[in-house]
């Protein structure tokens, strides 16, 4: 059995968020697609209130699967959590529907944006408030979203399918905000966007985190950007957490530098190529 050395593990929380309440905790979950394809092989992580937690890893590492396991969008893709538990504010949430989770304050922004193409930008935003009943506050929140994304206001009457990739990403985040979320599961916001736009989007994520107190679980391939904005990071490889720690520590870690930040001549490699990690199951219940 592979195990990982001590020094690659953090405490599960960034030092500056140490005394924060843990909103979301994923404990050693296993996910199987179509009853046969084992994709997550024991993933554990924690999302503290008010933090930006990054989930990093290459193609097919299992980032999206982890987020969908939490938001319960897995079911509609014939995926299933077969082991472990997912707790939100101490409540087991595996049996809940995505809409139950939205009502509890957890919403996912899917990879590839998934705006409703034939709806206008504003209609897209309004669908985000579907589970809410406080009509008056919805109008205020629309203004709030427009204040974070002035570009969406300019394009509010356009069909979302005809807006640019960056605008669609903003639209998808704005739509999630309209549900008044406590935690946003944000899947690859940088995908397919120019570096400048990536900065802009991450800047907005940061200010939403600081000003509105929204917690984020952020799945990213773009390790560099993610670790600059996040407080804490988990690195996923083939369905396992191979390393985690405060973002700052990860940025300075030699292996992360070499394999994920592209600061080596040898190109990206798997941790496993270098040395065998003995996986320490500190998150095991």
């Amino acid at each position: 059995m592979l195990d990982q050395p001590e020094e690659t593990h953090g405490d599960g929380v960034a030092p500056e968020l140490k005394d924060r309440e843990v909103l979301l905790s994923v404990n050693n979950i296993e996910v199987i697609y179509n009853h046969v394809i084992l994709v997550l092989k024991g993933v554990s992580l924690a999302v503290p209130k008010g933090g930006i937690t990054a989930l990093l890893g290459g193609n097919g590492a299992g980032k999206t699967t982890t987020l969908k396991a939490i938001s319960n969008l897995l079911k509609s893709e014939r995926g299933e959590v077969t082991k472990g538990s997912i707790l939100y504010r101490g409540e087991r949430v595996q049996h809940l529907s995505p809409s139950d989770l939205v009502e509890r304050g957890v919403i996912q922004v899917m990879e590839g944006r998934h705006c409703f193409e034939h709806l206008t930008v504003e209609e897209n935003l309004l669908t985000g408030s579907y589970t809410r009943k406080d009509r008056a506050a919805i109008a205020d929140d629309l203004d709030l979203v427009y204040s974070y994304f002035p570009r969406l206001k300019e394009r509010r009457k356009s069909q979302a399918g005809y807006t640019s990739g960056g605008e669609q990403q903003m639209c998808a985040i704005g739509r999630a905000l309209m549900s008044r979320p406590e935690t946003i599961l944000l899947d690859e916001p940088s995908m397919g966007l120019a570096p400048q736009l990536v900065e802009e989007i991450f800047g907005i994520v940061k200010s939403l985190n600081e000003n509105e107190g929204v917690s984020f679980l952020l799945a990213e391939q773009n390790t560099n950007v993610a670790l600059r904005f996040a407080h804490y990071g988990y690195i996923l490889e083939s369905g396992r957490v191979v390393m985690d720690g405060p973002a700052k520590a990860l940025r300075e870690n030699a292996d992360v530098k070499e394999f994920y930040l592209g600061m080596s001549d040898e190109g990206r490699k798997s941790f496993r190529d270098v040395r065998s990690y003995r996986r320490r199951k500190r998150w095991l219940a």
């Binding site: 969008l73 509609s76 809409s99 705006c115 034939h118 709806l119 309004l126 579907y130 739509r175």
Partner: peptide
């Protein structure tokens, strides 16, 4: 209407509709 909008949203993208809490 809100339900009408939900209906069109579902017509466009099931997964996204699920993700915002539409049943």
């Amino acid at each position: 209407t809100k339900q009408g909008r939900a209906m069109r949203a579902v017509a466009d993208d099931h997964q996204a509709a699920l993700s915002v809490g539409i049943s």
